[in-house]
Design a protein around this nucleic acid. Sequence first.
DNA 1: GACACTAAGTTCAGAAAATGAACAAATCAA
DNA 2: TTGATTTGTTCATTTTCTGAACTTAGTGTC
Lengths: 380, 380
Amino acid sequence: MNALLTSSQRQLVRVISESGPLSRTEMANLLGLSKAAMSGIARDLIDLGVLHETETVYGQGRPSVRLDLHPECAFFVGISLLEDPAPMILCDLNGKIIARQSMPLSRDPQVIAEAITEGLPSLLEAHPSAKEKLSGIGVALSGFVDETQSNCVQSTLLNWQDVPLAKIIRERTGIETFIENDAKAVAVSEKLFGSAREIQSFSVVSLGDGIGCAHFIDGKLYRGNHGGAGEIAHCTIEPGGSPCRCGKRGCLDTVSSMKAIKEMSRAEGLECVSLSDIENEASTGNAAAIRILHRAGSGLGLAIANLIQINDPGLILITHVEGSFDGLFGTVVNQAIETNVLPRYAGQTPIRIKRVDGDVWARGAASIAAHNFLIGPNTN
Amino acid sequence: MNALLTSSQRQLVRVISESGPLSRTEMANLLGLSKAAMSGIARDLIDLGVLHETETVYGQGRPSVRLDLHPECAFFVGISLLEDPAPMILCDLNGKIIARQSMPLSRDPQVIAEAITEGLPSLLEAHPSAKEKLSGIGVALSGFVDETQSNCVQSTLLNWQDVPLAKIIRERTGIETFIENDAKAVAVSEKLFGSAREIQSFSVVSLGDGIGCAHFIDGKLYRGNHGGAGEIAHCTIEPGGSPCRCGKRGCLDTVSSMKAIKEMSRAEGLECVSLSDIENEASTGNAAAIRILHRAGSGLGLAIANLIQINDPGLILITHVEGSFDGLFGTVVNQAIETNVLPRYAGQTPIRIKRVDGDVWARGAASIAAHNFLIGPNTN
DNA sequence: GACACTAAGTTCAGAAAATGAACAAATCAA
DNA sequence: TTGATTTGTTCATTTTCTGAACTTAGTGTC
């Protein structure tokens, strides 16, 4: 179906997915087409079930009718290989999750493909229309993915090297499949479903056991020359600092990741199992807890400040699963960003904090499939 | 003339400017058009004088004829407002400088426009065809420029705030004019005329009295949300370090710029007026000189490593006017990059050093006009 | 409530751009 | 010399877009 859309239809779908519902006239202006051409394109897409008419807006003259993507014109499956068991969700074109289950995680791509194939029927069971209009599978994983979103070039976590996972799953299930790095998948889902819809250039920093980061530049996910754009976790923050598992020293990952914070706490003899625990300790005046949070926060803040200086994004979106940004840690992060960004820019770059639930990765994965459905792999 | 080209013609011109001479069949494949369509488009562009046939390539079957941009189909004037007197050059579509003169620098935009208008006749005097085909003026300056390349949002050096310089010059001379930040202009000239032609994503770091940086991402200059992408000079490199004129502390600019290196030398009592002098001192074992170069080199290396980690560019091009990269400074920069980049990427990002002459800025400025002529402001 | 006024969206003939297929052109290989 | 091969052209046809006139569905005014 994707391939059946003409290039103008594609452009229109893209514009709506970025800007939300628009009238025909508005779309004609945005795309630089005549009203006549728009009229035809819109009619075709409505007939195809891709668009539908929504609200009517009254002003002077004939009211305009806004067109939006029909949320149920396509459905997507998203799978996260970052957790065990691996979550598997079904969602519509708006990113709404309509079914959820899980499957065992494996390091063998064939076994993964098999598990997905076996899991699909029950996932789709209660949703016959989704079954019919299933348009793609997305898989999120920790590692480097090539620009075709088909091959995992390298994954330490899964111990992979050049694994054509997408092709394997595609062949096994018969469904169009794309894979993506975890942080990049989250960025796409924020662009497509989330709070960064209308922003052309922004970066997502995802804070969890590790630290991920991905950039949208001029409306497109920028993956970098080796798929490594956004590897902020291994920026040197403390020159000559603690050794990192990557082989260098003083990486951001060794200072500000949740894993690092917890390890530092343990080393200091604090009995903390979560960020909240450490925040609590700090708020009661525990010097070690304060020191750890300060170090972690200023490290992350410095890295983000560098990112702002280098790329001048329109938004920094920090996602975190655990803890909160209301405490000392968040305060220090914000302060460090302020003090390390050019004064005339400080405060000019919106920093948005978003607490995400356990579905982030799976939803991100699904958004990769949705993105390929909407925009297509080749951005003409 | 620019406006007279159709969108297909534009695309073709762009492809050739990126890939160099191509046969009609190759272009048809690259643009996804039929041979028939290509044939017509090529004919039109040849008739317009934009393209011309170059070498004939023999293989099996009918030989193919490569088409290239006609270097004399358009001429551009480039002016650098970074020096006094301000250089003013005339160049063709290949970036070849065919005339050169200078004009007095001023802080008054009206006076600048006047000086340009007065300088044009003598610049064009010996080149009647250039006079006829003059297609644009480019101006490079130190400061922030908005995305329309018309307004200087802010320039400390010129003490400007929201100056619509391009419009003023355009109105005074009657010639299409674009302005650009110095580092970004150099990046464009490297993409258009220089060694980064075929690379889609790369960063230029220009080392001089100050440090500039600009990114090409997916074949387009990325200027950032406030035009501030590439402000690497004010990344914090030494937290809590020396105060910078920007108001922060420990900026790269305070450690690694030529100005900083010279100031540090003076503070150490070294009688050095150029980088070469300091390199000489260092090579004879002068501890202070070695310390200064080490500090400056590792600062710059760290900043570039951060840039690589964050953006994973296909090339880092370091341009420098003064000194050389053969000595201690260059060695330390390279080492610092190596040790601060993810080991599995170290050495994967080509670092190219380019010594540039005094025409860089003016040629960069001209390339901005050329870019707008070739690709147009709106990238459709 | 009749009337003008406004702006959205449609229709349709015609222009513009791209295609497919057949063909001409220029070479190599045997 | 003949056939194979590939580039590039031509032309009728199809696809896509435009301009202008028109229909539609409201608001504002008297």
